[in-house]
């Protein structure tokens, strides 16, 4: 399949990038931290490889020559929800799927700062 032809509108052939060079392990680790995900060394390396082609795809957008502003769909203030309370859901239902519960509260290990 010929995809090379496909993205002729991008400004330049896409070579990535992140402060020069490819995305390095440290940067992948930073993204993992933002994502709250943990990866083994192996996984990290395989991700770094995959990211290269993912970012080639993303860079087509970055390099696309196109103008225009973002148009947002909007609603008139008058059509917003009126401030009338409704019955809340029963607490048992809300906590049904929680892994740990005490005194109608969801429990997590003690938070240290």
């Amino acid at each position: 399949m010929q995809f090379k032809l496909l993205f002729h509108r991008s400004k330049k052939p896409v070579v990535f990038y992140f402060k020069g060079g490819e995305m390095d392990k440290k940067e992948i680790e930073h993204l993992a931290e933002l994502s709250k995900l943990e990866f083994s060394e192996e996984e990290l390396e395989s991700f770094a490889g995959e990211f290269k082609s993912l970012l080639e795809l993303a860079d087509i957008v970055k390099n696309a020559e196109i103008g225009g502003e973002i148009s947002y769909k909007s609603v008139d203030m008058n059509n917003l929800r009126e401030d009338e309370p409704k019955e809340s859901a029963p607490v048992e239902t809300l906590l049904e799927n929680a892994p740990q519960v005490k005194n109608d509260c969801i429990v997590v290990p003690r938070i240290m700062e």
Binding site: I28, H30, L31, A32, L34, S35, L37, F47, E50, F51, L54, L55, A58, V61, K62, A64, I66, G67, G68, E69, I70, S71
Partner: peptide
Amino acid sequence: RRIMLGNFVLSSGYYDAYYKKAKRLQS
């Protein structure tokens, strides 16, 4: 993989070049 990619295009320093640009393209 998609969570990681999403965090990349939203992260500080890349948001304008990727996410915002993509929104403009969409418009």
